[in-house]
Computed example of a mutant assay.
Amino acid sequence: MKSLFAIALAAVYGLVIRLLFGFANGLMEIMSITFLFLVPMGVGYLTVLLLPAVSVRTRVGAFFMPWLTSLVLLIITLALNVEGTICWLMVFPIFATFAGIGGIIAFSQRSRGNKGSDNSQQPTSLNVSFLVAGPLVLGFIEGEKALIPKQLTISREVVVEAPPTVVWQQLTSRKTSAPPASTHSLAALFGFPRHLTTTLDTFKVGGKRVAHYEKGLYFEETVASYQPARQLVLQVNANPSAVPPAVMDEHIMIGGKHLDILQDTYQLQPLAGGRTRLHLASQFYINTPFNWYAEIWAHYLMADILDGELAGLKVRASAN
């Protein structure tokens, strides 16, 4: 029972800090070093500090017990719609790891202070004050200072059993429907809306193309330049205010503060036997304090989305 209480109280602590960061949005950032590294350390520290000493006898146990608290916090924030599934799945490995580090710190302190005793060390008022006030003060100081914008390009390609003219016709069609997406794709597993149709008002520089997705999500694209049957460049105009709030988490909102798609470029290369190599490059930027980690997820998710787009074009062009 004491173990459940410790986990529950540490999870409530994490929830309160999350709500305070959200309430002070603009002054403090969820996508910050303070929240994603120091707050989970506080969650892990409090978990082990509150647990009976007999429940955590080794550093390994001290590292992994806070993972359970992190999981409870994940479930609570999803149930209360405080966080989105995609965002949590991306963040959980880091959050749980640093919660484990906080657990090891608490275990080490307790081991030094209670050698030869199984009594648990109760949190003092100083401990609690620091756990609550520390992240808030540091979060306020950090603000958006640690955000680092970085531009990236992800490229994918596919060989189509059709000549460039046929592929080009499908690429510039006034309206096309996307084939059923694979339920095993990373984007599908993360709940990213499925691409439904694409419409083009007129094919010329300045023409508008709109990609429609499930749940009311859509992206507007402007024809920036083209070379018939060779290259098509589209400027992507994401409007975050037009995205339904239930579709994408605010921290990974395309067109938002932390993520935006800038440009898509299609290139067609004729191959022997009337085939075409179709290449798609997407230029986008990320803006976080930990781009090294965000870039890993961005690469896999964007590559998955581009593969789906190319697969649809391949199916339509090959059928003609």
Rank of each mutant, 00 (worst) to 15 (best):
E161N: 15
A53D: 06
G102Q: 00
E142W: 02
L189R: 13
V128P: 04
V91K: 01
K115H: 14
Y218K: 11
V72S: 06
V243D: 01
Q109E: 15
L36E: 07
I30K: 05
F98P: 00
T199A: 07
A242I: 03
P93C: 06
G103K: 01
E144I: 10
P240I: 03
P179G: 13
S117F: 13
Q235T: 14
G274C: 11
S155W: 00
W67C: 14
S129Q: 06
L36I: 04
L313T: 02
S129A: 15
H251D: 12
W297Q: 02
G312C: 04
G102R: 00
A53I: 01
A319N: 15
V236I: 15
V43M: 10
T265D: 11
S177P: 03
I148T: 13
V223P: 00
V159K: 03
L51G: 00
L74K: 12
W88T: 09
I17V: 12
I86S: 08
S70I: 06
S125V: 10
Q169P: 03
K145A: 13
G255F: 00
L4V: 13
L19W: 08
R156D: 09
S129W: 09
P180V: 12
F140L: 12
G216L: 00
Q151G: 15
K2V: 08
Q263P: 05
I33C: 04
A311N: 11
A62S: 01
G206H: 03
W67R: 05
I101E: 02
T85S: 10
T153K: 04
L71V: 09
A238T: 09
W292D: 12
A317C: 06
T197L: 06
S129M: 09
A242D: 06
R174T: 11
I105Y: 06
S108A: 13
K215M: 12
V54M: 03
L20C: 13
I154Y: 05
V16T: 04
P240G: 04
V210S: 07
T197K: 09
T85V: 13
K215C: 07
L36R: 02
E29D: 10
Y300L: 09
V128H: 05
L306E: 10
L136Y: 05
L80G: 08
C87M: 11
G308V: 01
V39W: 00
P40I: 03
N25R: 14
A246L: 08
T47S: 02
A99P: 00
E250L: 07
S173V: 14
V72L: 15
L186M: 05
Y13M: 04
F23R: 15
P40M: 00
D118E: 10
V158R: 06
V236P: 01
L196M: 10
S282K: 14
A99S: 07
S155P: 02
H195A: 13
L50V: 01
A298K: 03
G14V: 06
F140G: 11
E157N: 13
V166A: 13
P179H: 11
A133V: 10
A224W: 03
L49S: 04
Q121V: 05
L27M: 13
A133L: 12
K204C: 09
L278D: 02
L19Q: 12
V166L: 13
I261Q: 07
Q231E: 14
L301F: 06
Q267G: 08
T77Q: 15
N127Y: 10
V243Y: 00
A317H: 03
A246V: 12
